[in-house]
């Protein structure tokens, strides 16, 4: 079962940028790509816990600000020779509003 709740307007996230979203104890990073797609990952790099919401967004990836690990926004998989995975959450956009599936949060908690 999906449980979509509105979390922000698309325009509130800078293009090629990110916003941090607090969901109780859990920090989520919302990313907006150059083509206005939005993705949500846990805001924690699998390497040393760097805040991914502070990284540089390029294509469909974000590079962690601490040690430059590159993470695929869609799958949460770490790219290149490094290995690891970040939890990703389901997101959709409807009429300029970003919705997050909070049912998908349960499994991350």
């Amino acid at each position: 079962m999906n449980d979509w709740i509105p979390v922000t307007k698309l325009e509130e996230i800078p293009r090629l940028g990110a916003r941090k979203l607090q969901a109780g104890e859990l920090d989520i990073a919302l990313f907006r790509t150059g083509s206005d797609e939005v993705f949500a990952l846990r805001d924690r790099c699998p390497h040393r816990g760097g805040p991914l919401s502070q990284g540089i967004v390029h294509g469909e990836a974000v590079t962690c600000p601490l040690h430059n690990w590159k993470i695929d926004l869609q799958s949460g998989e770490v790219q290149g020779p490094d290995q690891g995975c970040v939890h990703s959450f389901a997101v959709r956009i409807e009429e300029g509003v970003v919705y997050l599936d909070i049912a998908s949060l349960e499994s991350a908690a």
């Binding site: 709740i5 979390v7 922000t8 800078p14 916003r19 920090d27 909070i102």
Partner: peptide, 13 residues
Amino acid sequence: THEFTPLSIDRMR
């Protein structure tokens, strides 16, 4: 401001 203000699910709710 967006750079320094996190969003919050609880607030949205």
